[in-house]
Computed example of a mutant assay.
Amino acid sequence: MTKPNVLISGASVAGPALAYFLHHAGYDVTVVERAPALRDTGYAVDFRGPALDVLKELGILTELREHDTRMGGTTIVDEAGNEVVQLPAEAFGGELDVPKRDLTRILHRLTADDVEYLFDDSITALTDHGPGVTVEFEHHPAREFDLVIGADGVHSNVRRLAFGPDGDALRHLGMSGAGFSTANHLGLDRRGLMMPGKASILLFSTGPTEPLTVSLSFATASPALDRLTRTEQEQALRDAFAGYGWEAPRLLTAMSEADDFYFASSCQVHLDHWHRGRVALIGDAGYCAAPTSGMGTSQALVGAWTLARELSAAGGRHEIAYTAYEERLRPYVLENQAAGRQAAASFSGGEAPPAIS
């Protein structure tokens, strides 16, 4: 009997986790990733609540604990660098914090022998013709799949192809910003420093000899800056931080020299349904709660585990499985999205956007 085959777009966290569970449920799994190789960047990610149970199911919880950053608290300072208050580690971290590069490397190793990975490629067209989905790729020949799952982030290519333009699905939370690393000139040792406000600075390091991770955020009316060039994004940051003291001038200089600079706006994804026909979405692609929620990685893992479990329980009948997956997961997602909106408002000094049902 031929195994049902599934294509997953995205090889970060949700994609490989889902690939692992589906392979063990009897699926033939392919993962396509537009990056040329496994990504080796990203902040430390934290896990809370049910995500720890998923890590146990994956069999990697003990190994990940060996990579725990064991971050301490964060000192809040004013624009002159004067200490305002000390926050405990729990304010920004979860029950377990690990560098994202370690998580993605472990997930890839866990699945590499059983799952086909297509790096340096992306989906260009999806045709759901009832019995299956015809998938066209940028580089590989077109192929047929029984199911297609988008695990490709907040600006999901699969979502755009299957659901159409984002429209109101992508909700801006009033913040944009950049992240990069630089020399740890402050000697931070498993601690953070934060200057909140309309333009905010968050700095942390996992050790005195480790790089300083920098996040510069500022209030914006839309995510339009995401589409600009790096030069234009850097100028927007200089404009936002003009006149600020403390570490701002030094960090703006370091920003231009960083080779791991990235820019993103804080957004949420809201959809009435996370599936259409044989195509479904997991993680940020379907229900991003925004980085301010602190739940992105946990939500990705729980979403992958829930979808795989429902597909297995439904005997591969995707319509039943997709519906059950949404019903089971949506309360958890709504709670995380509410937290993301509230945190975005507290960082920027504004009011939280209204709740969305």
Rank of each mutant, 00 (worst) to 15 (best):
L186Q: 07
L96Q: 02
Q268R: 12
E247C: 09
T213Q: 12
S217C: 13
A151Q: 11
G153F: 06
A314K: 09
L237S: 03
I123S: 04
R238W: 11
P88G: 09
T104V: 14
V13C: 06
F21D: 00
L22S: 04
Y325R: 00
F145T: 01
A17M: 05
Y43D: 10
R34H: 13
L52E: 02
A44E: 12
R230C: 13
D121P: 15
G349T: 11
V158E: 01
A324L: 03
Q337Y: 13
P249L: 06
Q337L: 01
V29S: 14
L64E: 03
C267Q: 13
V269K: 01
S176N: 04
T75Q: 14
R328M: 08
W246H: 12
A37W: 07
R330I: 09
T75F: 08
A125R: 12
G26A: 13
A169M: 07
N336R: 14
L58F: 14
A254P: 04
Y325M: 00
L228Y: 08
E247T: 14
A240H: 04
A343I: 03
E95P: 01
R160L: 05
G296I: 01
S181G: 07
F241V: 00
G10K: 02
P354D: 15
A338M: 06
R34S: 11
P99W: 02
L64W: 04
T292W: 05
G132I: 00
V84C: 15
N82T: 12
P16W: 10
C288A: 08
E310F: 10
H24L: 05
D46H: 12
L307S: 03
G207W: 10
P249N: 00
P99N: 00
D40K: 11
Y27A: 07
G294F: 08
R159L: 00
A178G: 06
H139D: 01
V84D: 11
L307P: 05
V279F: 07
S265V: 00
F119P: 11
E66P: 00
P99F: 02
V333F: 10
T182S: 15
G72T: 12
A236K: 08
V214G: 06
A339S: 04
S256I: 00
L188N: 04
G177P: 12
T220E: 10
H140E: 09
D68H: 10
A19R: 02
R190S: 04
R276K: 14
R250G: 15
H23S: 07
F347W: 15
E351N: 05
F261T: 01
A343D: 04
L38I: 11
H275S: 14
R250H: 13
D166P: 01
A125H: 13
A242I: 02
R309W: 13
A314L: 11
